[in-house]
Structures are given as C-alpha cells and as structure tokens.
Design a protein around this nucleic acid. Structure first.
Ligand SMILES: [Mn+2]
Ligand SMILES: [Mn+2]
Ligand SMILES: [Zn+2]
Ligand SMILES: [Zn+2]
Lengths: 142, 142
DNA sequence: TTGCTAATGCAATTGTGTTGCGTTTGAACC
DNA sequence: GGTTCAAACGCAACACAATTGCATTAGCAA
C-alpha cells in the first residue's frame, strides 16, 4: 500500500541509489520550486518530516554529484539548489544560465561548449560556459 | 613630505571618508589585481602592513557601500572583490583557466567569449567561459 | 595644537556547511 | 515472510568566512 511517488523513487534507484524518504521529499520539493532553494528553505518546507539537517545537506550533495541538481552560491554566499534538466547531455557540454534574481540555473541544451585551444603544457578537465542575467520569469517584473 | 599615493588618498577624501593606510593599501592592491581577490588573498598580500583582519573586512565593506568595488560570492562561497572603476580590464571578454593544483587563474586573452542567443524573455549581464585543469607548471609533475 | 568621532584592534559570536562515528534501514536474496 | 549488510541516517563536534561589541587610536577640520 501507500503509493509513494513511484516516478521519483524509480529514478533514484535507476541511479543505483536507495530511495529514502529524505531523497524523495527533497526531489519532489525541488521539482515544483519556482526558484532555487537554500538548505534553510528546504529545512523549513520539510520540517514536518523531521529530517536531520545533515541528512538534507547530504541529500543535496548527492543530487549535485549525480547530476540531478545544480548548486550555486547566491549573493549572500549561501548555496541554492535547483533541478537539472533530466534529459540534457553532460553538463560540461552545454552552457548554463543563472538568474541573478531567483538564483535558478537553466541548462541551455542548444548552446554547445567547445573546448578551446590552450597554451603549451596546459591540460583541461572541464569547460564551463555560464551566463548570468535575468530569467524569463524575473525579467517581466524588472 | 612622504609623497604617499596622492591620487588614491584624494579620491578617498573626495568621498567624505578618511584616507587611512588600510584603505589606501587595499585600493592600490585591487587596482593592479587581474582577478577578483578574496579577503584571504588581500590579507596575505598586505601582511607586512599588519592590518587586523577585521579592518580589512571593514575596508572592503566600505568600498562596496560607496560604490568603489563589486562583491561576489565565488563557487566556494567566499566573497571576492574587484574594483568597480570604469577602466577595469574587461575580464568578461575572454576565457579564464583555473589550475586545479595551484589554484592560479590565467586570463586566456586569445580565447574570445561570444554572447550566445538566449531563450525568449531572458537577458544576460555577463558571460563567463572558464576552463579547469592543470597549468603548465603543475602539469609537468602530474 | 586640540577636539571630535571615524576608524581601528581584539575577543567573542554568528551562520552555513562538514566530518566522525555509532545506529538504522532499503533492498537484494533467499 | 525472514536474513543480511552496505548505504544512509542522526547526533555531536568541528571548520571557517564573516560579523558584532566595545574600548582605544588616529585622521583631519578648525
Ligand atoms: Mn546543465
Ligand atoms: Mn581575465
Ligand atoms: Zn529568475
Ligand atoms: Zn598550477
């Protein structure tokens, strides 16, 4: 019984991880979030569940590591998290847009990132193209 | 006597503030920096002067409040400061390389950054192309 | 030179995120 | 259904950039 969010739990297991209540709850929350959420936002929104603060930090770490979420430090130097586009190619192959207002990160799937030539002796492990500005939602009210 | 940086001290007084050694030193340092500096960077660069850490924090706060500097939180959520002067080098027109070993940031002057097309309603204020990897010096010992 | 108060130095504190470690639990297997 | 065990958790302690409180110093206008 208890038809618990089969989609999300299934996606978690598909990554080889355990579908715990904390992971399901955080992912569901981020899926419907209008803006990038801080750890504190999430703690407040899910306080009825009684998750430990460290558990929430670890869920968020795991989401970032496994490519499910983006993490960015906002202007007050607190991390904000937003869901990554599920069907996008690897994040280092496309550009990202970060809204200065709401903190949300958008995958710009159709803006490719090409690896530029480097000076002699240099080697690259990652390339990142990020644009900052106002997103479609926040630009309306500017 | 002691012709100490007349330009900077004068600019400080023109803002109605006192031209203290800490302010002059921090402003001079930021004027010649080719990247945004953290409080720690500044503390190290000016350690011969013996300024208190808090004094440096307060100088930087004052610079931001009075419009002399920009403050941004970097990916590791530490504040970085750069001069807001209109004649500042245009770091947003070229790519940057950050070495994973030594942490140094290199301006890749010949790798241009072009502003990509954005989704409807989006507007961009900055574009950043950053490559991470091993620099010429650190790559030799890899 | 003096007087006023902005600015400083130092200690304590805050806010956000991390680490260590013993305990619980998801899910694979029977 | 029960058994097993590493992944995940809860809690306490920790790390560290940044801020605040307060007594003292010093920039500069008069
Ligand atoms: Mn992406
Ligand atoms: Mn540059
Ligand atoms: Zn936005
Ligand atoms: Zn290096």
């Amino acid at each position: 019984m208890n038809a618990v969010t089969p989609n999300i739990a299934e996606r978690i297991r598909a990554l080889g991880a355990r579908a715990t209540p904390a992971r399901v709850a955080v992912m569901r929350l981020l899926e419907t979030a209008e803006r990038a959420l801080s750890h504190h936002d999430i703690e407040l929104a899910l306080q009825a569940n009684g998750f430990d603060r460290v558990t929430l930090y670890r869920v968020l770490d795991w989401m970032v590591e496994s490519g499910l979420a983006h993490r960015v430090a906002d202007a007050q130097r607190v991390f904000r998290f937003s869901l990554a586009a599920p069907d996008a190619p690897a994040h280092d192959r496309h550009a990202h847009f970060r809204c200065e207002d709401c903190g949300k990160v958008f995958c710009l799937d159709d803006v490719p990132v090409t690896r530029p030539a480097l000076p002699k002796g240099f080697s690259s492990s990652a390339v990142e193209l990020s644009i900052t500005g106002h997103c479609g939602h926040c630009g309306k009210h500017a």
